[in-house]
Amino acid sequence: MKKLINRQPGRVGQWALGLLPFVLLIIAYLIASDARLAANANDKLLPALNSFADAIQRMAFEPSKRSGDYLLWVDTLASLQRLAMGVGISALMALAVGIANGTIPYIRATLSPLVTGLSLVPPMAMLPVLFIIFGLGELAKVMLIIIGITPFLIRDLQQRALEIPREQIIKMQTLGANSWQIITRLVWPQLMPRLIGAVRLSLGPAWLFLIAAEAIAATEGLGYRIFLVRRYLAMDVILPYVVWITLLAFAIDFMLSRYSRWRYPWFHQQGH
């Protein structure tokens, strides 16, 4: 018999094993939920599946009694807009500063210590400052995401730019390239898949900052809703919202990964 480390599950086995923990978790939840509801039919902590179905029906497919909006979709749209703006602006800034830092020593000498310093400021500690400066509107929430993830993105891209083989930079010069052309034809195209990779990693923190900002001051948004209904212990709303946010995060990550593989085959086929 082979040693354990050399035994591989088959294709079907791989799927079955991957799904197993999810199935076990759901079963454990159902048993616990049943037990609690048997003891107290009004228990709010672990609602039964039909309560979830009711809540989803109420939030997603019936207009709200107070505002007439379909709350789940209004919340989703608001959150995704903030997330897209925050992450998009961060990515653009990171691309510009990261390339400049990684390519031009004089700019690196000037900006790199600043970026390192800024990246050590805890973004959540800046949130009150942002609310004071930018008010409670959209800008403060978007700014929190920007402040939270831009330093990380810049530092990552700067490092990647510095990792571009010296040979290729010399090669560009022997082909007659000036500094600007080295950026537009070598550094920028080679960093694009790196940027997508870094953005994928930063999406987790971006959601964190978004939900935190919405929890404190917002009038709609996924994070706002969760913290609003928390007052009524409405687990039947909170848990579907959490699952929905997770699905959104997964979908965004998946699309970015697929886009990168389609657009930059030369990068992904080199073992990245």
């Binding site: 083989p165 040979e167 290729q168 010399i170 090669k171 560009m172 010069q173 022997t174 082909l175 007659g176 034809r185 070598l186 195209p189 080679q190 930059y264 030369w266 990068f267 080199q270």
Partner: peptide, 27 residues
Amino acid sequence: PDESRGIVFQRYSVLSHLTALQNVMLG
């Protein structure tokens, strides 16, 4: 480095994000 001296290294001489044709057109 400039255009008067061309170079071929042992590795990494060509740009990995360009096809063969694009690499040669680059100059």
